[in-house]
């Protein structure tokens, strides 16, 4: 009995090293890693890998490896590979999970040109999508996380995937990386403490902790939605809430500068963005505290 269970354990470990395939919205990624701590975090966040019978088409094959042998002893490293490419310098071993997340973002941003990829948080309610473009200092991740915890369905914190053939938005539920002070702000709002992962101190972006996507949002990750509202948030400490309509040409310029692949898509990108802006209400919103903007977003006009 004991022997067989340890054998099963060995089999499980070996298959994990060979890699599991995980569903990321419209994509499937094969993730291979010998790092056990990282494997546990992957399971915490993305659940069990797809069964072999699912046989999805795999867009991304990534591997997080040890660094060279001597670096296993002194200051251990984690190295990200995507097929034959190694796009980043190694991270400290303890930051393997943020590295994986960053690497997957890189894979998507450099390859998924079937979408116009906006750099934005996206959420949905009653079939209508809200786009929160990420400008520096916008507090987008905090706001997206807070909305995802208060009745909105999380599409993505990073990628507004606009299918340029249909004009619809595609969900990509992935963990939301919260930075520094936002970690505590969101911790107060999380009903299940396990939904907030470990804090990784002193990464390139300061302290980072991930909020895993709510089960509802993962379960419905194939349900697309029509874009309805675009709000450019801007956090300014101590300022009262001020929401002002934004004219379409300004919204267009800001979004085009903010997309990952607007220039690459050429005329296709222009048409997609034009269609998006014309079909949406656009505002900019200045806010000093989370509660005020959350209640304002409850009262958005009908699209």
């Amino acid at each position: 009995m004991r022997q067989s269970s340890s054998r099963r354990g060995w089999l499980r470990r070996r298959s994990a090293r060979a890699g599991g395939i995980y569903r990321l919205g419209p994509f499937a990624a094969r993730v291979e890693t010998p790092l056990r701590g990282l494997r546990n975090l992957i399971t915490w966040c993305y659940g069990e890998p797809l069964p072999p019978s699912a046989q999805p088409i795999v867009q991304f094959v990534v591997r997080i490896d040890h660094g060279p042998l001597y670096r296993r002893l002194i200051a251990p490293q984690a190295v990200f590979h995507a097929d034959t490419q190694t796009p980043f310098a190694p991270f400290p071993r303890d930051h393997a999970f943020p590295l994986l997340e960053w690497g997957l973002n890189w894979c998507i941003a450099t390859r998924a040109h079937q979408y116009l990829m906006l750099h934005a948080g996206v959420l949905e309610r009653d079939g209508h999508a809200l786009i929160l473009p990420a400008l520096p200092g916008s507090g987008k991740s905090t706001l997206t996380a807070a909305l995802a915890l208060s009745g909105w369905r999380l599409f993505s914190d990073e990628f507004g995937l606009l299918d340029w053939r249909t004009g619809s938005l595609q969900p990509l539920p992935r963990p939301i990386p919260l930075k520094n002070r936002s970690i505590d702000i969101i911790r107060e709002r999380v009903p299940v403490q396990d939904d907030l992962g470990p804090t990784f101190p002193k990464t390139r972006k300061g302290d980072v902790a991930h909020l895993r996507p709510p089960p509802e949002s993962r379960r419905r990750q194939y349900e697309m939605a029509r874009p309805a509202w675009i709000i450019f948030p801007r956090y300014r400490a101590g300022h009262p809430l001020r929401i002002t309509p934004l004219n379409q040409s300004l919204a267009f310029t800001r979004l085009s500068q903010n997309a990952f692949n607007y220039h690459l898509l050429g005329a296709t990108g222009f048409d997609a963005l034009k269609g998006l802006i014309e079909g949406c209400h656009c505002w900019s919103a200045e806010y000093g505290d989370l509660a005020s903007i959350l209640s304002a977003l409850e009262q958005l006009p009908e699209p």
Partner: peptide
């Protein structure tokens, strides 16, 4: 082609078109 594979392959055309421009 499986749909997902075709979409992925065809999406890579934008690089070439961009470079040709």
């Amino acid at each position: 082609c499986p749909e997902a594979a075709w979409i992925d392959l065809a999406a890579q055309r934008f690089f070439a078109e961009h470079k040709q421009a």
